[in-house]
Design a protein around this nucleic acid. Sequence first.
DNA 1: GCCGTTTTCGGCCCGACTGTTTTCAGTCG
Length: 575
Amino acid sequence: MRNPEVARIFNEIADILEIKGENPFRIRAYRRAARNIDGLTRDVAGMQEKELLKIPGIGPDLAGKIREYVTTGRLEFYEELKKQAPPGLADILSVPGLGPKTAMLLFEKLKIKSIDDLQRYAEEGRLKGLPGIKQRTEENILRGIAMIRRHSGRFPIGRVLPVAEDIISELRKKSPVRELVAAGSLRRWKDTIKDIDILSTSGDPQKVMDVFVHLPLAREVLMKGQTKSSIVTGEGIQVDLRVVSEDSFGSALAYFTGSRAHNIRIRELAVKKGLKINEYGIFDVRTGKKLGGRHESDVFRILGLPFIPPEIREDAGEIEAALENRLPRLVDIEDIRGDLHVHSNYSDGSHSLEELARIAEKRGYEYIAVTDHSKGLGVARGMSAEQILQQNREIKDFNRRSGGIRLFSGVEVDIRSDGTLDYPDGILEKLDMVVASIHSGFRQSRRQLTGRLVSAMKNPYVTIIAHPTGRLIGERDAYDIDMDEVLKTARQTGTVMEINAHPLRLDLNDIYIKKAVETGICMAVNTDAHIDYQFGFMNYGVRTARRGWLEKKDVLNTLDRKTLMKHIRNKRANR
DNA sequence: GCCGTTTTCGGCCCGACTGTTTTCAGTCG
């Protein structure tokens, strides 16, 4: 897959062009192309010019550049550009408050071409005296450098959401807010978040701003204005708060939910219809009359579009789908009837089977699958063959007694480094369902890792592949597998792919989910819960599923118990 | 550099805040 490479190069080209002060629309064209290539499920290396031209934002020029790069491994235009602006120069654009104009100035006047250079000059007070730079700017640059040295920028959503909830509840208690919601990438449920955007309405915006910048968790105040302020929390997360009037709330919410690329497309549509959209409302350009803005739905309605759910507002085809009235009907948390991957105290979970059943019942589930670790996973107190058979008997016994919730007997069987499973088929066939996953040998070759998953999927008793890429957001990269091959095999064998809802996993991720949907395979959204509160992770999983355009019909655990069992037996029968 | 029910040229989303300015450019989202 060459797409990430091509996307990176286009982004770097955009950076350099920006520093050179080129036409902003040309720069935007490169960035848009980069983004669309990155989100593509097909490899651009295998596409002919004609197919490339069908990608939004790719015209004859960029199609040619893509072909040049994938066939020769080199892009002449890019090599030339790098000679004109040193590659490190683009890095200093990551310093907050420092943009392309300043970068060029610093390079021309002082030959600064890296963040290290910049820091040295700033510390020695040698930036002062350049046009537009005085004491204050120098201080801000040093603060900015310190900040990016502390944090790489994006945080897993599971770490950010609780912070946002804290801030929202504090503001509710201490300031005169009416509406108060998180917007931005948090409302779109991206798996990683750069900053928290909060939107509110209030009769006294100034008071809200005052309370906000004095919140105990505000370590630093980046800016404070009449209607907009920014702070940085102790964890290093930037939080932007915006206050608007009640009758602008809807348009402001649409605007601050983004994504930016989505907004630009929406506003382009508006311009074509003689309308103007900003955070204050939707206006008729000719008469200046305000047509709406109180409710977010106004924006879509006035444009003649169906409502687009926040999770898919990425300019990744949702605008086209809306225009043609073929938006997906996304799966909803209410559709989920059970969890097919949870652990008990038979292995490394905290609860007994009875306790798990009570927790699941409280959530309104019809069933859960108890899937403890297999013996190979010593660290997780994996079960011996005797133990799992014992557990199986206990589950059957429970189901006989229980009138309500149903427990499925299962296992999270380890896929060993040679691709074999940790239990023989003779044991697996006694269980209702089998979840299989990789827990070791992450550094094997792409071929080996792919082969392990493929051979596990070919086992008729393997129902679900759990956390298929093994990534831990911010801690461990996905291991190197050929996802096309894996999805193709899933399709052929009738194996289900998991969307692991743990907020550090969210694996498969949105991009792969979309690809899986296109491949036509069935998925399951599971929490992998080890303790009661983790059952609540289901929402993260469902939101991620929605980002991948997943519909209810694609999700195994939206089925009723009988249909679900039929699905599982189907694979076993087709061996 | 892309794009087209304003179609092969001339557009391309829109506004808030900061710092250094005496009216605005740069940056950000």
